[in-house]
């Protein structure tokens, strides 16, 4: 469907997620063993036939750019259309809502040059598997000005509108006082016809460390991951040439999601384990999220922890966090046995 433009607002800064997003944009927070948050919305767009995607990042977007590259992994390295990257000028954004018109205006040529009749504007941190073609169908059939995707009555910050209306809203933002697409939709006094599309199926909105941890461990329920990982609508990500995961003779693994390139010598239970993780002999790791390339030493006992990427936990470390307050080991740090909590 060449009818829709995809616009991903990756400018969001979230204080409650700060411990995982100190050096990366929220869109680049690792999730579900081998993905970054942005992979879900981007794959949904591609799987819905969208061939032109604009990404508007702001904070700390190095890791995001590294992850997306030319867009090849999403089949977006195209001669016509494809993936566009529009970093924010260093302006204070006047709105906390997504879809800031001021930011869009800086790159207005993209919208002017695009031939697509409709635009889809999304945030970067809503994890779900959705077919946007159905949203567009409803939008057209109901003759709406703006269609908002909702889940159980809550806005998922995904909006479909005509590109021409978007251009009007951007051009007239000073007169109307609307600074973002969110401002428009959530203002009860506007004169536009706003419709709602109710998504049914799994949704995770990642807006705090607590929700991150909760939704990560939820993925271990087969009925949850089956709703997210649908064979006909795969989630794409940057591929790494990691070998299959190796389980040694002493490995014990229960109810866990494990990515490639790991070496598991210990006991892993109710965990999400990212690519290239090493878990040493005699270590017991439960109810935790272990990000890529982290090494966990021998005989460690870890429960309710989030270990960010490239961290090293030395031998014999014991850490127990809480279900609603997981202990976080930051990216690239070394956690020694004597540094406990």
């Amino acid at each position: 469907m060449k009818m829709m433009l995809g616009v991903i607002d990756a400018t969001t800064y979230m204080e409650p997620l700060q411990n995982l997003a100190a050096h990366r944009s929220v869109a680049a927070v690792p999730f579900a063993g081998r993905y970054r948050l942005i992979d879900f919305v981007l794959s949904n767009m591609v799987n819905s036939g969208i061939e032109s995607v604009a990404i508007f990042p702001k904070y700390q977007y190095r890791s995001l750019m590294d992850h997306l590259g030319s867009g090849k992994n999403w089949d977006l390295n195209r001669k016509r259309d494809g993936l566009f990257f529009f970093p924010s000028p260093d302006l204070p954004l006047p709105s906390s809502q997504i879809g800031a018109f001021q930011h869009f205006e800086q790159h207005i040529d993209y919208f002017l040059r695009s031939k697509q009749k409709y635009a889809l504007i999304c945030n970067s941190y809503t994890v779900c598997n959705i077919d946007y073609r159905l949203v567009l169908e409803l939008h057209i059939a109901s003759q709406c000005d703006i269609t908002e995707v909702r889940y159980q009555g809550r806005s998922l910050e995904m909006f479909v509108l005509e590109t021409s209306l978007l251009l009007d809203l951007i051009a007239n933002r000073v007169q109307t006082g609307y600074n973002s697409i969110g401002d428009v939709v959530h203002n009860p006094f506007h004169s536009l016809n706003v419709c709602h599309y109710e998504h049914d199926g799994y949704v995770a909105v990642i807006d705090s460390v607590e929700s991150y941890f909760h939704h990560s461990l939820q993925l271990l329920q087969p009925d949850v991951w089956k709703q997210l990982f649908i064979q006909s609508r795969p989630i794409y990500t940057k591929v790494k040439d990691e070998p299959p995961t190796q389980y040694t003779a002493d490995a014990v693994v229960k109810n866990s999601m494990i990515a490639n390139g790991c070496v598991i010598e210990g006991h892993v239970e109710n965990c999400i384990v990212f690519r290239g993780v090493k878990i040493g002999k005699g270590a017991v790791v439960k109810n935790s999220v272990i990000m890529q390339k982290t090494q966990i030493g021998e005989r460690c006992e870890l429960e309710y922890v989030i270990i960010d990427k490239d961290a090293k936990v030395e031998n014999d470390v014991k850490i127990t966090g809480a279900e609603h307050r997981p202990f976080i080991i930051r990216k690239g740090t070394v956690q020694g046995a004597l540094m406990n909590q």
Binding site: A32, G33, R34, L220, P222, W225, F229, I235, P243, P244, T245, Q246, Y247, T248, A249, D250, A251, V252, V253, K254, N255, S256, M257, I258, A259, N260, I272, V273
Partner: peptide, 17 residues
Amino acid sequence: PPQYIAAYASVVSSLVN
């Protein structure tokens, strides 16, 4: 997607993709 090892499964001395 990553591999899923169920609560009642066991995997030892193996390579799994």
